[in-house]
Design a protein around this nucleic acid. Structure first.
Length: 362
DNA sequence: AAAGCGTGGGG
DNA sequence: TCCCCAAGCTT
């Protein structure tokens, strides 16, 4: 094992590093707008957007953000509502909250100058070990190895590392190996290369026939490439039942902002009654009266749909209702439909809006 | 330290 | 359809 400083493993590591740099220089065709970028602000932004997110999905968001906020002071000065609107649909909204917090911190406390030391970068909200290493190596060529899903996959195969990547020991081992392989003077170049290699060749379903390292890859040599990397945990998918009442009166609708530490924190929504299981509409309507005092209305539209998330399946029930009197409702605000486009909503609620708009035109 | 956090694409 | 996964981080 490379962890024991075994001679063969050290040689294998050195050969890999050399070959991957060569592959990157002459054969890697992967292009992304932030590649070769030296502005730490843009690198930071791209890295945060790409956390647990596919390049194809994040690309448009990156372009929109750069166009709207070309530097960190611009981002820090922007109304939070607008920033969330730009983030809408990208998911993991804590990233957006942390983005805002960090932008303001750097703009106000550090005179708009992005920190240049790894430890300081790491201390920023929303920046963990991966993102700190990426920024440090790409912007300043500091010798910190990135460890992301690509690198876990590549290293687990090259060295047939069977320890679970989602265990504490596993992360530690992989981190050590990754750092050992990094050529200190070519940190940025190498980090980019190994991630591209993982994205282009050593993919979840790997293209071993096309791989420059298949004669030395321990997983391939033993036919275990499809079994690596190993994960220990299996996630349990829970169910939730969200009953949304789209309560409208003339050209206005009742909305509220989600403030709890829960999914979609900071985003907006319609009147919500969450139930511990799926309820029939007949049992739902009394709740609407009891909890919010809404009891006189006509039903315009009603439907159900599901949204599958990583950790839960959400069963939505929508009820679009119209009331004649614009009564105040606790913790909710009446808002014109035309203003909703300025607020960030969860994707499924956007779909619901689209649906009732189409419906109203018929 | 395990659990929670979104969305979309691919096998 | 279902499960995995995607440039992870926070509490």
């Amino acid at each position: 094992m490379i962890l024991k400083n075994d001679e063969a493993e050290i040689m294998r590591g050195a050969a890999f590093t050399k070959k991957i740099l060569n592959w990157n220089r002459y054969e890697n065709n992967r292009q992304m707008p932030w590649k070769g970028e030296k502005d730490p602000y843009k690198i930071w932004l791209s890295e945060v957007i790409l956390q647990q997110t596919r390049v194809e999905q994040g690309l448009k968001y990156y372009q929109n953000f750069i166009a709207a906020y070309p530097n960190i002071d611009a981002l820090a000065a922007a109304p939070e509502e607008k920033i969330f609107k730009l983030w809408e649909g990208l998911g993991y909204y804590s990233r957006c909250r942390n983005l805002i917090q960090t932008a303001k911190f750097i703009s106000k406390e550090m005179e708009g100058v992005f920190p240049q030391a790894y430890e300081t970068i790491l201390s920023l909200k929303g920046v963990g070990s991966y993102t700190a290493a990426a920024i440090a190596s790409f912007a300043y060529n500091l010798p910190y190895a990135v460890l992301d899903g690509n690198v876990f996959r590549v290293l687990s195969r090259i060295f047939a590392m069977e320890i679970a990547i989602d265990s504490t020991k596993g992360r530690k081992d992989f981190s050590l190996v990754a750092q050992r392989l990094l050529p200190p003077k070519k940190a940025g170049e190498y980090n980019q290369a190994i991630m591209d290699f993982g994205a282009v060749i050593c993919k979840p379903v790997p293209l071993c026939d096309d791989c420059f390292f298949n004669k030395q890859c321990l997983a391939y040599l033993s036919g275990k490439q499809d079994l690596l990397p190993v994960k220990a945990k299996t996630i349990r998918i829970k169910k939730r039942w969200l009953n949304y009442f789209i309560v409208q009166c003339n050209d206005e609708v009742l909305i509220q902002q989600r403030t709890e530490k829960d999914i979609w924190q900071n985003l907006f929504q319609f009147v919500l009654i969450e139930t511990p299981n799926g309820l029939k509409p007949k049992t739902l309507l009394p709740l609407l009266d009891k909890q919010l005092g809404i009891n006189s209305f006509s039903i315009l539209n009603e439907w159900s749909q599901e949204q599958k998330l990583s950790h839960q399946t959400i069963c939505f029930h929508f009820l679009q209702i119209k009331i004649e009197k614009r009564l105040p409702v606790q913790n909710h605000t009446w808002m014109k439909f035309s203003h909703l486009q300025n607020l960030a909503f969860p994707t499924t609620l956007l779909q619901a809006m689209q649906k009732i708009r189409v419906g109203s035109l018929q």
